[in-house]
Computed example of a mutant assay.
Amino acid sequence: MLNFEQKLEILESFPTLQRKNVSLGRVNFHYEESQSDKKTIALHIHPNGNGYIYAGLLQGYDLDEKGYVNVREFTAEQIKTLVEASIRSLSNDGEEGESESEGVREENHFYDAEVWINGEEESLTLTRDEDLWYIYTGPSIEMVFGTLQEAKEYLWEEGFSPSRD
């Protein structure tokens, strides 16, 4: 496990991130150039070694309800890779072809319907039709968004995460 100083050194090596000291000796890192309302890339990096990196728009990570990954046991390379992918995912402004990062579904590609589930086992379906992103509750439309990023942020904020089935 990397110690607090090692994790800070990795995060401080990204010139686009701004360090923000918070309570209890913890440190956050913000990405002010984010094309989303989400600005916090690293959350509560703690002297005890704990900390979280935002991966809400990425696939293949064990996320908490807010879209963060606990990086307590991550290697330096794993943290660097995750931070780079997170920055890229938040750099996509929804224009076609903007995101070329692996693990992030691009908006100009075909998008199958994706089921999202919350803690009460309720499900919503995210799908694309033409240039809009639809969230369905059963056969009824719950919300419509202009970008995939907005739709996913809404789902995360409502406590849903992608079904692993």
Score class of each variant (00 low, 15 high):
Thr147Pro: 10
Gly51Cys: 03
Leu90Gly: 05
Trp156Asn: 13
Val71Asp: 01
Asp64Leu: 05
Glu153Val: 03
Arg26Trp: 08
Ser36Asp: 11
Tyr61Arg: 14
Ile41Met: 03
Asp129Trp: 06
Ser99Val: 11
Trp116Glu: 02
Val27Glu: 02
Thr127Phe: 00
Glu100Arg: 13
Glu5Trp: 00
Ser23Glu: 09
Phe110Ser: 14
Glu32Gly: 09
Asp129Phe: 07
Ser89Cys: 13
Ala151His: 07
Gly138His: 03
Val115Ile: 14
Pro162Tyr: 05
Gly67Val: 08
Ser86Gly: 15
Lys39Leu: 10
Glu65Pro: 00
Gly67Tyr: 03
Thr75Arg: 09
Gly97Pro: 08
Thr125Ala: 06
Glu142Cys: 07
Glu130Ile: 10
Leu43His: 10
Asp165Ser: 15
Asp112Gly: 08
Leu155Trp: 08
Ser36Asn: 05
Ser89Pro: 12
Ala151Met: 07
Leu2Pro: 05
Tyr54Lys: 05
Val71Asn: 00
Ile45His: 02
Pro47Asn: 05
Lys80Thr: 09
Trp133Glu: 10
Gln59Pro: 00
Asp93Thr: 03
Asn108Glu: 10
Ser86Tyr: 00
Thr137His: 04
His46Gln: 07
Leu2Phe: 03
Glu121Ile: 09
Ser23Gly: 06
Asp129Cys: 03
Thr40Cys: 14
Asp93Gln: 04
Phe145Tyr: 14
Gln59Arg: 08
Leu11His: 07
Glu32Trp: 06
Asp37Met: 09
Val71Trp: 02
Arg88Pro: 00
Val115Glu: 04
Glu142His: 14
Glu9Tyr: 02
Lys7Gln: 13
Lys152Asn: 01
Glu77Arg: 12
Gln6Leu: 01
Phe74Asp: 13
Asp165Gly: 15
Glu5Val: 00
Asp112Ile: 06
Ile135Phe: 09
Thr40Ile: 15
Glu95Ile: 12
Glu12Asp: 15
Ile53Pro: 00
Ser13Val: 15
Asn70Thr: 08
Leu43Ile: 03
Ile10Trp: 09
Ser163Trp: 07
Gln78Lys: 09
Glu120Arg: 11
Ser86Phe: 02
Leu126Thr: 13
Gly146Ser: 11
Asn48Val: 08
Leu57Pro: 01
Ser36Leu: 01
Gly51Ile: 12
Thr75Ala: 13
Pro162Trp: 06
Ser86His: 02
Phe14Ile: 06
Phe110Gly: 11
Asp37Asn: 14
